[in-house]
């Protein structure tokens, strides 16, 4: 840990806020991506099943 002197508060809060916001954005994007992928896979599976039963 470097000695930040009298600007320690400023530097740490700036870095903290930045890293928090970026991580929140990454986390949110990732979560939305996973949810969308799962839902789409389920819907594709349903569609495939429906297609098969229609053929029969």
């Amino acid at each position: 840990m470097p000695d930040l002197g009298k600007y320690a508060e400023a530097v740490l809060s700036a870095w903290g806020i930045s890293i928090f916001l970026v991580l929140a954005l990454v986390g949110l994007s990732w979560r939305q991506s996973v949810v969308a992928r799962r839902q789409l896979e389920a819907a594709e599976a349903r569609a495939a099943k429906r297609g098969k039963s229609d053929d029969a």
Partner: peptide, 20 residues
């Protein structure tokens, strides 16, 4: 990339749901 892929998947999902 990740977010656009999510949007595309949502669009496709929406289309599938409509078809269903």
């Amino acid at each position: 990339f990740i977010r656009t892929r999510t949007q595309l998947r949502r669009r496709r999902l929406h289309a599938l749901e409509l078809r269903e």
